[in-house]
Design a protein around this nucleic acid. Sequence first.
DNA 1: TTCCTTGGGGAGTGCCACTATCCAAGCATC
DNA 2: GATGCTTGGATAGTGGCACTCCCCAAGGAA
Lengths: 215, 215
Amino acid sequence: MRLAELSERSGVSTATIKYYLREGLLTPGRQINTTTAEYDEEHLRRLRLIRAMIQVGRVPVATVKEVLGHVDDDSLPRAIRLGAAMWALPQVPEPDQDDEYVQAAHQEVSALLDQLGWENAKQLTTISPAYRSLVVAVAAFRRLGYGFGAELLAPYAELMHRTAVLDLDNMETYPSQAERIEFAILGAILNEPVLQALHRLAQEEESTRRYGFDE
Amino acid sequence: MRLAELSERSGVSTATIKYYLREGLLTPGRQINTTTAEYDEEHLRRLRLIRAMIQVGRVPVATVKEVLGHVDDDSLPRAIRLGAAMWALPQVPEPDQDDEYVQAAHQEVSALLDQLGWENAKQLTTISPAYRSLVVAVAAFRRLGYGFGAELLAPYAELMHRTAVLDLDNMETYPSQAERIEFAILGAILNEPVLQALHRLAQEEESTRRYGFDE
DNA sequence: TTCCTTGGGGAGTGCCACTATCCAAGCATC
DNA sequence: GATGCTTGGATAGTGGCACTCCCCAAGGAA
């Protein structure tokens, strides 16, 4: 398949595909001669994955490259590859450690992990981007005068733990390592929009049940 | 309080505050004379809300303006104000209705709502941005060859419904309408990063429990 | 021979969230 | 009353990002 066909089957313009090639998101096709290159189904698949990450997951191009680099790195064991890919995903900016709200949020989140017995996550507090994101968000709540301590967070964390169990159960239904890795990346990137959309739909449903369509 | 103090207490530069004033995100201070304006605690609070939306929620400036416009519109009943504010939040681009994957995803999501008995959400399918987001994400999964039908979505939806119940229960602990509205907006915007972070932390915890730190 | 298409590459575009600079007016201090 | 600072207002500029346009020389087709 040549560039034009790859473009047509993926719905991505040739100019954009060339851009992805330049940026190293997509491996070059098999060069037939100076003016022709041949692409295969794997290129199409990878291109669709890239589009899903960018359009649905709002992942920046540079981050997509980093994530795919980890996915393709056969030298790493699976758990590390997955973690590396996940941690490359966009995160909130580094919080100001001197900020009193950030410090208070840190205490609360740490207490939450103790309360939940998440021993493994606890070991990652200094490095995990997810932990940092959580601290920043809780600090933002506090700054605006709304409490969002461990007692309120715990039931949410419990529900999120159950979704994580579902995620991994689903992943384990795939037989091959390659599929599992890709599914896990997709799960991390596409599942979140799915959860977010379900959450908003559920909010609409529940608030209509409680308050009706108007008030 | 003057501009400089507002800047210092919020941690936002005066240049940026001026930009927000120009863009209409922040109402002008009380004009004392041609060269001085007085800001109050309400301005500081609003500014912090704006920063939380932009930095934690990644909401574009134009959207922040729209959301705040709905929040401040006293002419609308609460349920509508909330809905209007929520629906202004950034969403995935409009899906291509002719795309076969989008149509299949539409079927699946619709079947899911029937199965769950979400009658109210069902009525919103043609207009709700959350519904649209869900369809787009499910279509992206299918395009990559991973099934993500109603049978897999239902348990996630069940968990998301429970988080929505938590959201509304929390909201109802606030006595005043104004606080409830603001908390609900915050809940919509800041809660999602919180849920996302908890989800990723839970994934790290659970996958470490199953597979250990390396493999 | 003429024309079209190919891949490659550099430069340009449009949007966004600021950021920098300038200005005249005011107030505060010396 | 001169000096220096800050104020709000306005305009223009910056840097990043995700493309998008245009040109090129080489190859294949009519």
